[in-house]
Simulated assay, not measured.
Amino acid sequence: MKRVAGVGGDRVVCCDRRGRLQVNGRSVDEEYLHRGDEPSSVAFDIVVPEGTLWMMGDHRSNSRDSRELLGQPGGGMVPVDMVIGRVDWLGWPLGRMGSLPRSGAFDGVRPPGGAHG
């Protein structure tokens, strides 16, 4: 499973001066990251094309996500029509079983010039 870090039109940058992911100029506090992980060991500055998503795992040091395909055809973007659902509940590991609360990490992020519909 991966987390949507950017949608069409978003500028996603790693990282700000404090080492945090930035989306459209706003730094994101990602409290859900795996303990000891940094937002990314790979620097990037991308604008997500319309109709695609920039995806990142929560266990960044052990995640094959959009960063893995930077420089490849498609640039690591995932077409929106390839997404078939969302995660609302965890069944494994057993110690984390249960429903997933919204993190709110991206609530303050707005696209340049407007708000997401």
Rank of each mutant, 00 (worst) to 15 (best):
K2Q: 08
R3Y: 00
V4F: 04
A5F: 08
A5D: 03
A5P: 05
G8P: 12
D10L: 06
R11G: 06
R11N: 09
V12F: 09
V12C: 10
C14I: 09
C14N: 03
C14V: 05
C14S: 08
C15F: 01
C15E: 00
D16W: 03
G19Y: 00
G19M: 05
L21F: 05
L21D: 09
L21I: 10
Q22H: 02
R26Q: 15
D29I: 08
D29T: 14
E30L: 02
E31K: 15
E31C: 12
E31S: 14
Y32G: 02
Y32N: 00
R35M: 08
R35G: 02
G36F: 01
G36W: 08
P39Y: 13
V42D: 10
V42W: 08
A43M: 10
I46H: 06
I46F: 09
V47S: 14
V47Y: 03
V48G: 03
V48N: 07
P49A: 02
P49M: 09
P49S: 05
E50M: 05
G51R: 02
G51E: 04
G51D: 12
T52M: 10
L53H: 01
W54G: 01
W54C: 11
W54A: 12
H59Y: 14
H59M: 07
S61R: 15
S61V: 12
D65S: 01
D65E: 09
S66K: 06
S66D: 10
R67M: 08
R67V: 13
L69D: 15
G71P: 04
Q72S: 15
Q72E: 14
P73Q: 08
G74P: 12
G74L: 06
G75Q: 15
M77A: 15
M77E: 15
V78P: 01
D81V: 09
D81L: 04
M82W: 13
M82Q: 14
M82A: 15
V83N: 05
I84W: 07
I84N: 11
G85N: 00
V87E: 01
D88Y: 09
L90C: 11
G91T: 10
G91F: 12
L94M: 06
G95V: 07
G95D: 09
R96N: 06
R96V: 03
R96S: 14
R96M: 11
M97E: 08
M97H: 12
M97D: 02
G98V: 04
S99F: 11
R102I: 01
S103I: 03
G104A: 05
G104T: 06
A105H: 04
F106M: 09
F106E: 00
R110Y: 12
R110M: 14
P111N: 03
P111Y: 06
G113D: 12
G113W: 01
G113L: 07
G114D: 07
G114A: 06
A115P: 01
A115H: 13
H116K: 11
H116A: 07
H116N: 03
H116T: 00
H116P: 13
G117S: 10
G117E: 11
